[in-house]
């Protein structure tokens, strides 16, 4: 939907559409907002985007996003290096950091095993994870992949790698959400929660 009066504005609208959930209408609204009401914000956005796109790579140790060779978390001196929490995305690192008092380290897979999409162990950096498990520093690997069939498959795969290197694999519990009602919980969740019951 070109504006018909400016190639630069049309170019901006088209570029904004790379964002998830942004269609032509919202892209156009964003472009006009930036150009009409917030030029300074537009410049900051452009600089931040360029700096991040050029500078951000992956942490050598945990594969999360960072501009340093090691991310700030991996470089923190006080963290427990014997615990390693495996998650699917950098967003999951943030979620665990904010929700728990976990003081160990992380490993970010960047996805999950998905044979139908051609994603196998190599694509997830699992050789790097295995080298880390083999190095002997890690004693417990906490598998915090998503409770989906693919996440579960990934967890089982890594658990076997861990066992082969004498590292204890643990899996985060899944069950009924806090404040939820059993009647409204889906069968998959409830069947998991029931199978994973424990003594109180």
């Amino acid at each position: 939907m070109p504006t018909g009066f400016s190639t630069l504005v049309d170019g901006l609208i088209e570029a904004l559409r790379v964002l998830p959930g942004v269609g032509p209408r919202s892209a156009q609204r964003m472009a006009f907002h930036l150009l009409e009401r917030d030029r300074e914000g537009a410049r900051r956005l452009a600089q931040a985007l360029l700096a991040a796109a050029e500078g951000v790579g992956r942490c050598r140790e945990c594969r999360t996003l960072t501009e340093d060779e090691r991310c700030a978390l991996c470089a923190t001196p006080g963290r427990d290096r014997s615990q390693l929490c495996v998650v699917e995305t950098p967003a999951d690192v943030a979620a665990v950091e904010q929700a728990t008092g976990y003081r160990g380290l992380y490993f970010v897979l960047g996805g999950h095993l998905s044979p139908l999409d051609g994603i196998g162990p190599a694509e997830l950096g699992l050789d790097q994870l295995e080298a880390r498990l083999a190095a002997g520093e890690v004693r417990e690997v906490i598998l915090a992949t998503n409770p989906t069939v693919e996440g579960e498959t990934t967890a089982q795969y890594i658990a076997e790698l861990a066992r082969a290197h004498g590292v204890l694999p643990t899996r985060i519990a899944h069950g009924v959400p806090v404040g939820g009602e059993l009647e409204h919980v889906d069968v998959g969740t409830l069947s998991h929660a029931f199978a994973g019951r424990r003594e109180i």
Partner: peptide, 17 residues
């Protein structure tokens, strides 16, 4: 075949279960 290749690399450690 590609799906199968991925499954075969996955099957190696899981085979022990």
């Amino acid at each position: 075949r590609r799906v199968r290749e991925v499954l075969e690399t996955m099957a190696r450690p899981l085979a022990g279960r």
